[in-house]
Design a protein around this nucleic acid. Structure first.
Lengths: 249, 249
DNA sequence: GTTAACCGTGCAAGAACGTGCAACTTCGTG
DNA sequence: CACGAAGTTGCACGTTCTTGCACGGTTAAC
């Protein structure tokens, strides 16, 4: 393996796993830890990651140059996305909703996992196609301007014919009393229809969603298989939610 | 082996393996590493790959000028797009194919024209939603990696239910003898199916397409309502094409 | 506070590199 | 065909880069 290739490999591991463990990579690649450490140091000097004891981590969004920050999810969303990706089983079919958290998930999809990703969002479809080797199926229909998601009768019909193992749903409000809510009626209908066609529905709950409510109800909390939350979110509402739904953190 | 052949071989290896190791190639070909290094240096100077210690690697996507080329249509494409937009009648339903020329069209769509735009391309769908006030309908299906267009059986079924006034078709080859051709079989099938559901099909013929041919036939020239070409394109093939199809310039 | 893992630095061996040069081939010209 | 110019190729040489190891300092964990 070329030295330059090794750096690409480290970048790839960081993108996928969210961290690099120097010892593991050295063993995997059959090179000394010294070389890996040298690479990590150079990558850190180049501002591509931050060096920590034992390996390296992504640059915290707060420290990132502003032009990137707008595109990338917040730290909380990235943690939620990472936890959610762990729920994906190889050779399965999953549905990814629109949203910044699911967008973050597209960058973490494991390569070679033989996945099929179905999505009503053109942006998610393009992101999956770019960042992973999964089959991509886009749900057709009229694009709702509000959310840039295929919805309306055409989408509803397309949804009736799909079947998937897992649905990663984004809701703008996740509240112990009001349940899952979103800001657009069409979206709510579409999300509900998709959930009905998937074996398991997981809700992505980054910190700003917990305890919030929006106008249109999507699903009862009891109807979902799990609520994925930020592992470091101290919000007490999460324990309230845990009484009605399995919380994964 | 000729020097030029050797360079082709290096290109091929890079394409196949994603890297070139100077030592290995030298041993394989029975030439000195010096020659390989010289070749690699020239190829790198020509911008075809990046030289690294021990060999060469592909140009990282971020540095690729293709990205800019994909975003910004050539002047010829812009002129073709402008001419094509003139064919759109208010309150009509049109289908936009994938491609840089249609992407240029999305920026020129007249506001307030009460248009409905149907497209099998997620990228076009997003661009239309961003740049115009048209209703956007996306055709669902499996995304073909080659062209990032919905195709396959799901797309075919969705196409059967649509109806539009005009289809703006992109073909990679437009030839007086071979007709309209494209580089991917799935694409050809999808384009043909869409054309069958539209009252008028217009082909977008920016300069590099005229007289070119690709592998898979899409349609006969007689099957389209018009061929939109660059007003300032002096290519004599255009007059040949005019004998079989209405040329709009 | 002890211990083990991890780190940075210095160092030496080896690999890869660039340059200059001579032998050879190719090509054009007389 | 003879000749020279131009280009290509392989080799020699000194230089630079990379890598793994040794050693002593630092950090985290128990």
């Amino acid at each position: 393996m070329l030295g330059a290739q090794r750096k690409d490999h480290l970048r790839e591991i960081l993108r996928r796993d969210g961290r690099v463990v120097a010892k593991d990579v050295a063993a995997d690649l059959g090179v000394s830890e010294d070389s890996i450490r040298r690479d990590l140091r150079e990558l850190a000097d180049a501002g591509e990651m931050v060096r920590v004891y034992g390996g390296a981590l992504p640059i915290p969004p707060a420290d990132r140059p502003i032009d990137q920050r707008a595109l990338l999810a917040t730290e909380s969303k990235e943690r939620v996305a990472r936890r959610a990706v762990e729920l994906i089983t190889p050779a399965s079919t999953i549905v990814l909703d629109a949203g910044t958290t699911t967008l973050a998930m597209t960058r973490m999809l494991p390569p070679g996992a033989d996945l099929t990703v179905i999505t009503p969002s053109p942006a998610i479809a393009l992101a999956v196609a770019e960042h992973s080797d999964a089959r991509v199926v886009i749900i057709g229909g009229e694009l709702a301007r509000f959310s840039m998601v295929a919805s309306g009768p055409l989408a509803m019909e397309a949804v009736q014919h799909l079947h998937a193992d897992a649905f990663f749903l984004g809701a703008t409000g996740i509240d112990p009393v009001r349940g899952l809510t979103t800001g657009n009626l069409d979206d709510a209908v579409t999300k509900r229809a998709i959930a009905a066609r998937c074996a398991h529905t997981y809700v992505l709950g980054s910190e700003e969603k917990i305890g919030a409510t929006s106008r249109y109800p999507v699903l009862e909390l009891e109807a979902v298989a799990g609520l994925v939350v930020d592992p470091v979110d101290p919000n007490p509402v999460i324990s309230e939610l845990a009484e009605r739904v399995a919380v994964l953190r």
